[in-house]
């Protein structure tokens, strides 16, 4: 082995990587396996069956979970749409707005929801809603989700926009295209992959949130995480493992989707002049 070839590689790093993947996946895979357990006990193995998957859709808790899933999905879609729109506008303003006073303050404000610990955001939002008498319910959850999704949508969008040279817009403007037309027909198609990954990231972040939702959810409103938490507090049941496995599959589909969007983005890098 010659030195220059070998220099990148360290003994043991491969082993640590494998250990890392085992740690990351072992609990998930074990839950996945036990979700096919026929026994009602979570400790004993009673053979392979799909009964807990049937239970998720038809069992006594199924109505609750369906409603929670619907709430989670609709909130996530709306929160991701609104926050991606706001973040796209903000990214163009920040990166195509030239130098201006308060630029770093603007950036700090946009990243504020990431910097403030979740539990603090939860407390502040609860106090705020309670002081102004805003009724807790689906709307309060949606508003809070929009706020903390903005920076997550902003990051990929602005990263993409930074990689796009300005000549395209300038060419369009030279041809008397309006600013809207410049955005719609020149900038947006090139920004597309960034906007899409921003949307997906915001979507998954909203779907994932437990702490803030738990603080400000109103009467009768559950999202999947709060419903699962409520259920898990009384003990891990096999139907929760089946539900978790389904959600796991859903996440894997999403991440695969975002992976391919990323690949397409790489395949079509921002054009260079």
């Amino acid at each position: 082995m010659t030195r220059p070839f070998d220099i990148r590689h360290y003994r043991g790093f491969f082993a640590v990587t494998c250990a890392c993947l085992v740690i990351l996946y072992a609990p998930l895979i074990i839950v996945m396996i036990y979700s096919f357990n026929d026994s009602a006990s979570i400790t004993n193995w009673g053979g392979v069956s799909l009964r807990w998957y049937v239970d998720v859709f038809t069992g006594p808790d199924s109505e609750k979970f369906k409603l929670a899933a619907w709430n989670s999905l609709s909130i996530a879609v709306m929160a991701a749409t609104v926050s991606t729109t706001i973040a796209t506008a903000a990214a163009i303003g920040m990166i195509r707005g030239g130098q201006f006073k308060g630029k770093s303050a603007s950036f700090a404000l946009i990243s504020l929801p990431i910097m403030v610990p979740e539990i603090v955001t939860a407390v502040a939002t609860l106090i705020f809603f309670s002081t102004i008498g805003f009724k807790l319910g689906t709307l309060s959850i949606l508003v809070a989700h929009i706020v903390f999704c903005i920076p997550f949508a902003y990051l990929p969008i602005s990263a993409r926009l930074q990689g796009i040279e300005a000549s395209f817009e300038e060419a369009a403007q030279d041809l008397y295209a309006s600013r809207w037309a410049t955005f719609r027909y020149v900038l947006m198609p090139i920004m597309g992959p960034g906007i899409l990954s921003g949307f997906l990231l915001a979507f998954i972040i909203s779907l994932d949130d437990f702490i803030i939702t738990n603080f400000i959810k109103g009467a009768g409103v559950e999202t999947l995480p709060t419903a699962i938490f409520g259920s898990v507090k009384q003990g891990i049941k096999p139907n929760i493992m089946a539900l978790s496995t389904l959600l796991l599959m859903f996440s894997i589909c999403l991440v695969t989707l975002s992976y391919f969007i990323g690949k397409r983005g790489e395949a079509n890098p921002p054009p260079q002049t």
Partner: peptide, 24 residues
């Protein structure tokens, strides 16, 4: 019917006073 659950008298009181009174 919609139903939310709690796990202690005190937690229920806290939640009602934190803004859910008027919802239940």
């Amino acid at each position: 019917v919609t139903m939310d659950t709690y796990d202690s008298n005190e937690a229920m009181l806290a939640s009602l006073k934190a803004g859910t009174l008027g919802s239940y």
